[in-house]
C-alpha cells in the first residue's frame, strides 16, 4: 500500500478505545454478525460503511448493549468488558446518537441532554446546574445554530436535533461516540454543520464511529474506514490506503483487489 508507515504508527502507538474480536450475533436462526473484528481509535473518525442489511445497525446496537453479543470479546480501553444493557455502555463512556435521534419532542434541549441522568439536589432536579453544563458543552463544540437551550426539541430543525443529540453524547464525557447516519436526512448546509461537529468531536479526543452511505462524507471526515459485507468486516483500514472505488467494491462485493474477504469466507 502507499502509506504503510502511517498505518503502523496509528495502530501501534495508539491503543484502540474499542476493540472487537470474533464477535457473533444471531437473531433466532439468522446470523447477522459473523466473527467481527473492529478497532476504533481515540481522536479518529472511523467510518462504518456497508449496504443495507450488512449488519451496521446490529453492530452498533451490540456495542451499545441494546442487543448484547452472543460470543466474542469486547475490549474497552484494553480491558475485556461485558456490555449487557444501555446503562453498561453509558458507564463505560459509550454514547450512541441514533438515526431516529431518540429525543423526546416534548422536552427542551437541556432536559433531553440530561435525560435519564438528571442532576439533583436532594429530591429536587437541579435545573440551574444542568442548564449551565448544557450551555458549556454547546459552547465547547462551537454550536451557533441553537437560539435557546430552553426551546422544545419539537421546534428544532433536523440539523439542530442532530446537534443536540451529538452534544448530549459529549456532555457525558464519553470516550466513544457512535453516530448512526447523522447526515441522512439533512440539507447541504446542515450536513456541513454536522460534519464540522463530527470533526471537532474527534479533535477533542473522542473516538468516533460514523455510519454513513455517503462516500463524499466518508472521504471528507473519516480517518479510517471499516466496511461490512453480509455481517463480516471486509476491511478495517486507514482512509489513506483506499480510494472511493475500492470502498464501493468492498461494500458491494466484500472484496477489492488485495483487500477484503477471502472468497471461501463468503461461501456459507
Amino acid at each position: 500500500m502507499s502509506a504503510p508507515e502511517q498505518s503502523t504508527t496509528t495502530s501501534t502507538l495508539e491503543r484502540p478505545t474499542l476493540s472487537l474480536r470474533g464477535v457473533n450475533k444471531s437473531f433466532g436462526a439468522v446470523q447477522v454478525l459473523h466473527d467481527v473484528h473492529l478497532d476504533v481509535y481515540p481522536g479518529k473518525v472511523t467510518a462504518l460503511v456497508g449496504d443495507n442489511g450488512a449488519g451496521k445497525s446490529t453492530l452498533i446496537k451490540a456495542i451499545a448493549g441494546i442487543h448484547p453479543v452472543d460470543s466474542g470479546t469486547v475490549e474497552f480501553e484494553g480491558k475485556a468488558v461485558q456490555v449487557t444493557g444501555p446503562r453498561d455502555a453509558a458507564r463505560l463512556g459509550i454514547e450512541v446518537v441514533y438515526q431516529d435521534l431518540a429525543l423526546a419532542d416534548n422536552l427542551d434541549v437541556v432536559q433531553n441532554m440530561f435525560l435519564g441522568r438528571e442532576r439533583k439536589r436532594g429530591i429536587v432536579l437541579d435545573e440551574a446546574s444542568m442548564e449551565e453544563a448544557a450551555r458549556d458543552t454547546l459552547a465547547k463544540l462551537s454550536v451557533r445554530t441553537l437560539k435557546s437551550v430552553r426551546q422544545l426539541v419539537s421546534s428544532l430543525s433536523g440539523g439542530q436535533r442532530q446537534t443536540v443529540a451529538i452534544a448530549k453524547a459529549v456532555l457525558w464525557e464519553s470516550k466513544l461516540v457512535i453516530l448512526d447516519e447523522p447526515t441522512a436526512a439533512l440539507g447541504v448546509a446542515q450536513t456541513r454543520q454536522v460534519l464540522d461537529l463530527v470533526r471537532r468531536l474527534a479533535d477533542t479526543g473522542h473516538a468516533v464511529v460514523f455510519i454513513t452511505h455517503n462516500m463524499v462524507d466518508v472521504f471528507e471526515v473519516a480517518d479510517r474506514v471499516a466496511a461490512l459485507y453480509l455481517g463480516r468486516v471486509a476491511a478495517d483500514v486507514p482512509i489513506s490506503e483506499v480510494d472511493r472505488t475500492q470502498v464501493i467494491e468492498l461494500i458491494t462485493s466484500g472484496r477489492s483487489g488485495e483487500l477484503g474477504l477471502a472468497p471461501d469466507a463468503l461461501e456459507d
Partner: peptide, 10 residues
Amino acid sequence: GNAEAARRAG
C-alpha cells in the same frame, strides 16, 4: 413524549 428514547436513556 418518546418511550423508545426514554428506554435508550436508561
